[in-house]
Amino acid sequence: MKKTPILLMLLALLILAAFSIYPVFNAFRLSLFDMGLLQREVTFVGLKNYSVLLSDPLFYNSLKATLLFAGGSVAIQYFLGLFLATLLSTQDLKGIRFFRSSFILPYTLSELVVALVWLHIYDSNFGVLNGFVNALGVPVQRWLFDWAMPAVIVANCWWGSTFSMLLLESAMKGIPAELYEAAKVDGASGLQQFFKITLPSLHYVSMLNLIMITLLTINAFGIVFVLTFGGPQNATDVIGMYMWRNAFRFMDLGYGATLAVVIFIFNIIITLLYIRVFGKETLKGSVSK
C-alpha cells in the first residue's frame, strides 16, 4: 500500500529524471569546464566561467532585455488571454467555435514560422504593416529598428496568448453558474461579478498560467532570433539569445552552460516569487484537496 504511489509514478519519474532533470545537473557540471564543440581539450576551471559572467557587460544587458521582453510578454499574454476568455464566455455566443478556432490558429505554427511571417509583416521597405500605415496617411516606420522590443513582444504575444486564453476559458467554464445567478439577484453588475466571482475563482489557474508563460518566455528565443538577432545595439539581446550565440555560434559549451544555470536559477526565483505573491495556500490547496 505504501509503495503503490511510487510504483504508479515510477515510469513518469524515470523519464523525467533521465530527460529533464539529469540535463540540469549536466549543465551545472559543464559550467565548471572550459570546453567547446570545436575545442580539443577540456579543462576544469572551477568557477571561472561565473566570474567571467559577472564581469560581462553583455550579460547584464541581456538581463535587462529579458526583463523587458518577459515582463511585457507575460503581462500582455495573461491579460489578453483573460480578456478573450471573458469575451468567449458570453452567454449564448453565436459563432463561438469560429472565434475560438481563429484565436488558436497561431498556436499551430512553430515558433520559427511565426517569426518568419512577422519578419515579412514588419519589413520596413516592403512589409504589409507599413502598407497599412501608409494607407492611413501615417509616415512609414522602421519597426525592427525604432520599435524593436515592442515588435518582438507583439509577435510573441500573437503566438502565445492562445495558451492563456484556453486555460482561463476552460477554468471559467468550471465556475458554477448559480454563483452568477445569485449575484445577479443581489443586483451585482457585470464588472462586479467579474471581480467578485470570476477572478477569485481563477486564483489557482492564474498562478499556474503565469508561472508557465513566464518560464516559456524566458526560455524562448526563436522569435528574437529571427526578427532582430538581439539587435539593434543589443536592445533585444535576451538571455536565451545570448546563450544560443555562445553555445552554438561560438560553440563555447562551458559558458553556454553557465548562462543556462543562471537562467535556471532565475526561473526558480521567479516561480517562488509568484507562489509568494499568490500565497502559499494556493499551492497547498492543490495538493491536499
Binding site: 529598428f145 524593436a148 532582430t228 539593434p232
Partner: peptide, 12 residues
C-alpha cells in the same frame, strides 16, 4: 545611408 542599416538583414 539609413541608420536602420545596423538592423538590416543580409539581403536588405
Amino acid at each position: 545611408v539609413s541608420p536602420e542599416c545596423i538592423a538590416y538583414e543580409w539581403n536588405t
